[in-house]
Design a protein around this nucleic acid. Sequence first.
RNA 1: GCAUGGGUAGCCAAAAUGGCAAAGGCGCCGGUCUUAGAAACCGGAGAUUGCGGGUUCGAAUCCCGCCCUGUGUACCA
Length: 884
Amino acid sequence: MTLDIGLIHMDEKYFAKKIEQKWQRKWAESGAFHAELTDDKPKFYALEMLPYPSGNLHMGHVRNYSAGDALAWYKRLKGYNVLHPIGWDSFGQPAEDAAVKRGVNPRTWTEENIVTMRGQLERMGLSYDWRRQMYAHRPDYYKWDQWFFLKMYERGLAYKKKTQVNWCETDQATLSNEQASGGLCWRCGNPVTKKDLEQWFFKTTAYTAELLDDMAEIESGWPASVLKRQSDWIGRSEGAFVDFRSADTLVRVFTTRIDTIYGANAVVVAAEHPIIAANRDSLSADVIAKVDAIIAENLKPKERDEEVEKDGIDTGLKAVNPFSHEEIPIWVGNYVMMDYGTGAVMSVPAHDERDFEFAKKFDLPIRQVISEPHMEHAHHAMQAMALEDAFTEYGVLVHSDYWNGKTSDIAKKEMTEFAEKHGFGEGATTYRLRDWGISRQRFWGSPIPMIYCDECGVVPEKIENLPVELPETAPFTGTGESPLAKVPEFYETNCPNCGKAAKRETDTMDTFVDSSWYYYRYTDAQNSDAPFDTTITNKWTPVDQYIGGDDHAVMHLIYARFWTKAMRDMGLVNFDEPFRRLLTQGMVVGETFFDDASGKRVYYKSDEVNVERDQKGRISSANLRSEIQNPKLLRYAIERMSKSKGNGVDPDEMVEIYGADASRLFVMFAAPIENELVWNEAGIEGAVRFLQRVWRQVYKWKSAAAVGSSEESSAAKKLRQKTHQTIKRVSDSFEELQFNTPVAALMELSNAIGDVGEPESADTATKAAVAEALNALVLMLTPFSPHVAEDLYSVLVGNENGIVANNARFPEYNEDLAKADEIEVAVQVNGKLRGRVFASPDATNSELESLALAEEKVAEHTAGKDIVKVIVVPGRLVNVVVKG
RNA sequence: GCAUGGGUAGCCAAAAUGGCAAAGGCGCCGGUCUUAGAAACCGGAGAUUGCGGGUUCGAAUCCCGCCCUGUGUACCA
């Protein structure tokens, strides 16, 4: 099909838009990416983290989905049955913010955004099985959130308690511990406070040990840094509980260093510790005041790097050290936290940095009871040596009665046994991980299917009554009260148990609930009887490759792992870990310009700013363009790309200008996927040029690409070598999840084709070699730029079907063809390159050695000198070491 | 502070177990084409691999010290 417009043949020029629309239509019509279970191909589940429908795709999405799609294509070409789905994480706060600010219904807002974003994804030409889309906000999905909730409740994995929860003043909502990691709200970045609330929890701690131990199963496929962050988050700590008697009660402390117990100078408890409340009446006014001050301080938000000074007070209460029988004071200290361990510690200043600092400040006795092994005798002789810092290493016990002379290791073990035997302690493992608080005072989430009845108490909704549907709308105030609590039609109901009037729970679930199991729903997305059919799901899952940002390392990824383990115990899946392999892509960032004089950052777009740069291209100053007379100096930074920060590049616009193929190719080529990508659009034209070049090469050789072979010319041999070396390089790169290096390899191959010259002057062998090279090049280009690859492949095979419909496969690597029949070997003298020789790839070391020594320049440099030794690296180089 | 990445031409980046003269792209320079420019095409220049030491026949790669930088995290007892 050739369309003549004047003298130009339409199909000999690369028009991205035209071919992209053409192939997108073809794919959609043929259901090219519909995945069905079959037995004749191995399955591969490629998954990218699902998007929140904010309204617009950003560059982070483009990067994430381009990589995932490249992998899906590669696996498809390798003969796998690939499942590659997408869906919408469509519950969440921005929809509700839009309702508060602009009076839009969250549902309308969300649905419209999805339509927009789906269009953007389609224009990128991503190979999704769109039939499997899930929408978290639709009742056919969140019904199963509720179903899971009831299953969890049945199994004791969902429970309610009143507790101090993380509270974000800005967002007016609670946060789980994971979402408040680092003391900052995961969504808005503002410091988190505490609030007493009654909340529903999922019992993640039921799987603490497994979450830790099963990391062994995925160790080889996950980035070590993510596993490390998870294990730090779970925070296993081995030690012992020890009871200190205080009058008629016991104060239990947790310690990892029971061997230092003879050095305890006090028991320090958290301000919230029950012993304080129990003795409130008898404590002095000073103590009460201090306790209340610390409690109040703990509720306040803290800036990230804020160093909190140690504070505390002697309560006047006493406790007895069960080992030494010494009576020591009980202090309240602001550095002891109620929610870790037992909320009480034994203070051993000599061997703990925090206790040391505390003791210094309040002038408490510091007694060394662990000595460095060689200092042991000196310590026995002297009563106390002044320590400048806490000695926190293991050593040998001193000043510890019976235990003197024992090493820390042995003492820990024996002292724990001793405590157990005498009933004042026990070995213990504590964790930092807490249960997952999922109640949110929000409208736009999955309603928690529980009912409060005056007669029967807390009653679960009946499964057959699910879904508990959200009302059309509710009064949105943004004040942190559940909007559903103002909708009587929603909360007024009857008790499933006794039938009397009752009230529904009006909090909704954390949106991380939706993302904990969505990837199972994709495997059987239309199921209306169950979240999915276990037989089907067990065939597709676990996910073979998951790709997304590492900002979810301790949120989504821990929840999803927990969920999978819970599901396994419910008999729904037959494995422990949801994601075999994980790839974390780096952020896409760009320059931002802002004014923070008011204390809050006001961002400006780059085209509103005059920028001066230094020689390295870094910004040296920036000021606002509109105020030339009185330039307003702006501050600048490099931050994650987003529309609100004015540094967002609109992917849709990029696709419109350069085409999806070039945009995707460029994003993959620009930097290693796991690196941060500082956005710089300058290079994208190179991607366009490369595609145009390949396009031209295909058309140039189209008619010349004759079959049949004659004697292989050296040009033909060289090109075939390059082709097969490239096949190897590109497939190895995909296996290692590298997406930038194979693009460079393809460019090299294209350059090599260019080096062959013109078809008119080529011999038959060369034509065949070029045909092979182009065929391989186009197929290997498919994962990055599928539309142009489909089109060019059609030209190469001479039918309109392209890659998918012709059922094309990734080119086969032939090792013999990749090997040169003559190799060039570098010859060095004393490590300096002096010449080179040509030899057969099978030449022996001694053959290479004599060739090398005979080489003219080498002979010159070795003449009259002693040859000390000759090092031969087969196939690479010969180094002659001479002396004199 | 602790942990963990990284520093290769003006910019982004590649180089299995140490082994050739350090890929590819952007930008730059020159040429072809054009009335001219742009685009496109062809060609070219540009790197003692952050600094200082060490090991080795041989170091971007290994070791030691220093400098700079990204990310995570912090009274976790």
